[in-house]
Design a protein around this nucleic acid. Structure first.
Lengths: 201, 201
DNA sequence: CTCCCCACCTGACATCTGTCATGGGGTTCT
DNA sequence: AGAACCCCATGACAGATGTCAGGTGGGGAG
């Protein structure tokens, strides 16, 4: 019997998913969590064979929760499930030691079989998401450019970005300008949108 | 036996939810759809007692699908389920004739009981969402201001907005300026974010 | 009918942004 | 040591944006 931890902030989805996984003969959901922090708390108290985590959760996200969970329970296999697959997320997830990565558009049968396969030591990444990740490639942004672009993403003016990043306004503009050029964007917002879409910020 | 139509673009969620609803003695899911357009297509072929629709779906969204569905089947009760509840959405949904409105954070038991209650002719709106909607009040934006702000939301420059809205650039700037003032925002992006959060655009 | 709000426009101004040139200090690789 | 990066900065300029003042015309409320 494979013991599962299931985490998703949407109660309806989480219980429905639990129900569905319980239908499988060899799977049992022994704990649920509604946030990344709960995942960590539960992981301190109990042990699991496989954790199925939603990527987007309030507070600590799925990847961050996975990192902490794997520190506490190195033997636990982690599967990330996500609504919208961003290439950068996949990369971060894999480097965090996540063994499975699926969009929510996959079928229940696939989820169950992925749970079994990661429990057996295998890995599984949705083919479409991995293709996207390969196509997107690595971020061309330098760390500082990414920082600045992230601060610019919500439409803050240059002066505020400069204050928050402890930079001079001129430098901020230079970083923004080079980011816009590198991402082949029309303006900083376009650049931020692109970078976010590809998971680079 | 209450006959249900279930629509959600995420396959995993949809089947899990279907599974969960089927557990109820008096409910049966007779059709599923992965998009708003599918909802309409299915509604032409078959009839239902209650439709449970996700708000955000590719193409035609839940509310637009509900409008068309109610045109085809006036006797069908519609329940909208959503991940993030925006006050404006609730308002639009209710004026489209939707009878139930729930966040995905509610429990399965609540969903089932709401399905029964709307089928019996009742209405149900999640208390927290309706409180938010009341607190948010009505949009202070004129229709044109809302149009322009929507076009500005993705960071397009004024000239492009002007072209797309068939306005002069000066007018666009005036609308934007008044929207920013009305929404008490720092700049147009802040205004767009606020308006989007409240479901006004 | 008058008043007010809305849709649309123009023009002018200060400020903010995007871009370019240029430079110094640091690390890493050859 | 030199080349090739990255980080950080300044200054300058065109163009975009935010704000204000003002004008036309239409429709609904009083």
């Amino acid at each position: 019997m494979i013991r599962l931890l299931l985490a998703d902030d949407e109660h309806l989805i989480r219980t429905a998913l639990a129900q569905l996984l319980e239908l499988e003969e060899d799977l049992t959901v022994v704990a649920q969590a509604a946030s990344g922090d709960e995942v960590v708390a539960v992981a301190r108290a109990e042990s699991f064979d496989v954790a199925v985590l939603d990527l987007q959760m309030p507070g600590r996200d799925g990847i961050s929760a996975a990192t902490e969970l794997l520190r506490l329970q190195p033997g636990c296999a982690v599967v990330i499930v996500t609504g919208h697959g961003r290439p950068g997320h996949l990369k971060r997830a894999l480097s965090a030691g996540v063994r499975g990565f699926l969009p929510k558009t996959t079928s229940a049968a696939t989820l169950a079989s992925v749970v079994r396969s990661v429990h057996a030591g295998g890995r599984y990444v949705d083919p479409e998401l991995s293709a996207e990740a390969i196509a997107a490639g690595d971020s061309p942004l330098t760390p500082r450019e990414a920082d600045v672009l992230e601060l610019a993403a919500d439409g803050a003016p240059v002066d505020e970005i400069a204050r928050r990043a402890s930079l001079s306004p001129g430098t901020v503009r230079n970083y923004l300008s080079s980011a816009v050029t590198k991402l082949d964007a029309a303006n900083r917002h376009d650049a931020a949108a692109t970078a976010r879409r590809l998971g680079w910020i």
